[in-house]
Nucleic acid binder design. Structure first.
Length: 309
DNA sequence: ATGGTTTTTACTGCGTC
DNA sequence: GACGCGGTAAAAACCAT
């Protein structure tokens, strides 16, 4: 059973298979090994409270009222909401609906709140389209709220700002989603998203947020293309053996990941056409070729690697 | 706006099935 | 001939200044 820690990460002793460090991931409810990825326990039950206590007094009261606070609703989900009409009982249909309608109107009383409410709905929508986890939705909503707080979010394309917020949230949480994917889900131009993304970075003094590791891209592309598991494993092995920092800066991570997968496929005498890999990675064949060339020029692939996989 | 870097586009020749 | 692969030059996109 996991107990909620301060930073959502709990350290356990050692992994039974490789003796590596075990990490309890509170958010996913999993107990996994940080080196070999062995899952010791999953679906762990969250025994902690589902609400946040902001001060000691709250904590002591241990009130259990309503849903947890959420960034995705304009009033943080704190105000009262009238639910659907009970199927039985004395409630007269028209009257009930009228009260409900006015209550919703009053909840979002001023134009600002109504606007915010719409935007947050939009964020949730796009995040759901992309199958993003709940915490990304929350983070993006939080980021968007901040842009409004610091004035620069106003008078900007709403879809552009929301998409940029979602992209930033992905980067912060280490989820490998490209600007292109998010732009597609939101139905806008890629340019817009990157423009506003840069704006947010500039205005909020965000320190540089690194791209998710190449390994995430490799897994993603491999899943998308349903490649053989050992090809993926070999590609991951290659990327971890190679310190690509010398030549990878400024290049798209997807292209590099595609190159690793291609090399892995060739080494394990699998024939995956460059075209396929580049399509899955959403880059061109030329880019894949160039990355391959750079990898091979800079490193000699040792054949003993093959036996280890 | 500009200039440097990276990616894409479009086209080439080569070998193989 | 169709296909995959490797290469190139020029255009386009990107990004920091």
């Amino acid at each position: 059973m996991l107990e909620k820690p301060e930073n959502n990460i709990i350290l356990y002793n050692n992994c039974p298979t490789c003796n590596g460090r075990l990490i309890g991931d509170y958010d996913k409810g999993e107990l996994v090994c940080s080196t070999c990825g062995f899952v010791l326990e999953d679906n762990a039950v969250d025994s902690g409270p589902e609400w946040k206590a902001l001060n000691l007094e709250d904590k002591e009261k241990k009130v259990r009222v309503g849903s947890p606070r959420t960034q995705t609703l304009h009033d943080y989900g704190l105000s009262t909401e009238i639910g659907p009409r009970p199927s039985t009982g004395k409630y007269e249909n028209s009257n009930y609906n009228r009260i409900k309608k006015w209550q919703t109107r009053l909840r979002t009383s001023n134009p600002g709140e109504r606007g915010l409410s719409n935007v947050l709905t939009k964020i949730t929508e796009v995040c759901n389209n992309l199958d993003l986890p709940r915490n990304i939705t929350e983070t993006s909503a939080h980021i968007y709220r901040n842009t409004l707080k610091q004035k620069f979010g106003k008078n900007k394309s709403i879809l552009g700002m929301t998409s940029a917020s979602i992209y930033l949230a992905c980067r912060k949480c280490g989820v490998s989603r490209t600007i292109t994917e998010i732009a597609r889900a939101a139905g806008i131009e890629k340019k817009q998203v990157s423009k506003y993304f840069r704006l947010i970075l500039r205005e909020t003094d965000e320190s540089y947020i690194p791209h998710p590791s190449i390994n995430k891209y490799i897994s993603k592309i491999s899943n998308k293309g349903k490649f053989k598991p050992y090809v993926e494993r070999l590609a991951l092995k290659l990327s971890s053996e190679i310190s690509e920092s010398k030549f990878s800066s400024g290049k798209t991570p997807a292209g590099l990941a595609a190159a690793y997968l291609y090399i892995a496929a060739v080494l394990s005498s699998q024939t995956i056409p460059q075209k396929d890999i580049s399509d899955y990675a959403e880059v061109t064949e030329v880019t894949v070729r160039n990355r391959c060339k750079e990898i091979i020029q800079n490193f000699t692939i040792i054949h003993s690697l093959l036996s280890k996989v």
